[in-house]
Amino acid sequence: MDLGEQIRNKAKELIEIETVDCVIGYERATDGVGARPLFAYKPEEVDRLIFDQTCTHNLAKYLLNRKDKATAIVVKPCDSRAINLLLNESQIQRDKLFIIGVACPGITKTGLNNTSEELQAACQICQQHTPVIYDFLVGEPPASEPDIAEAYADVAAMEGQSAEERRAFWEEQFSRCIRCYACRQVCPGCYCTECFVERLDPLWVGIRIAPEENEVWNTIRAFHLAGRCIACNECERVCPVNIPLSLLNRKLEEEVRELFNFQAGMDAETPAPFATYKKEEVFPEIG
């Protein structure tokens, strides 16, 4: 039975016995090759559910729109970490959720009418092929996770550059930002009812879509995700001007792992480093 069929069978059962009133999963997109999110409320809508290596979206963000409603959701391992993040931060309720986890074969580079078979960069170095939280698992989890020696090769390459080179690189990247906020809207960790960027009093950043303001926007957003980013890489995928946001997020992820031995969303209980204060913690020397 293919993954899609297993998901459809489970989803139909959940809708028919009214365990949930909506299943959030994937259906085929209008290009006929890619995927898009589907909200299935009725058994005949469940028939449209699919799963394959084009199912790139992290659907966990949508749970924030259905906080009080019984919902089933299809999650890949990285997406499942987003559920833990949201549970940990008291944004969603476990008893309203039915989690259909997918042992993930990796997602291919997507985009409209794209049939590339190459795995996305994040999937090439993925060390978590089984969801970390689920009620029902589809697919075959691997016997063991791959041991990836160079998990932060991209970050190391960036750090190998001089400060001037890095500044020039990021200035060029941020100058392209059009402040569409797609990176924020898609991110499961970005759920503030009033984002700092839209706040008027105090005014953190002006409305200009211009290099200086863009830089403030992009760097503060990255910092707000430190120790919270669950590495789904959705922000980078959706950016219409291809800003390599994962480099910022992964740099911060590496720092948090080294300093606190913590990775966001691996479970729903461990308090996040920036939500905890320990007296014995000392500020590391910054070189």
């Binding site: 963000k61 059009i178 797609a182 219409p240």
Partner: peptide, 16 residues
Amino acid sequence: DRLADRCIHCNICSYV
């Protein structure tokens, strides 16, 4: 409303 289930309300469509 059904279509908006899926929409993430970014500004990409307007800006491109």
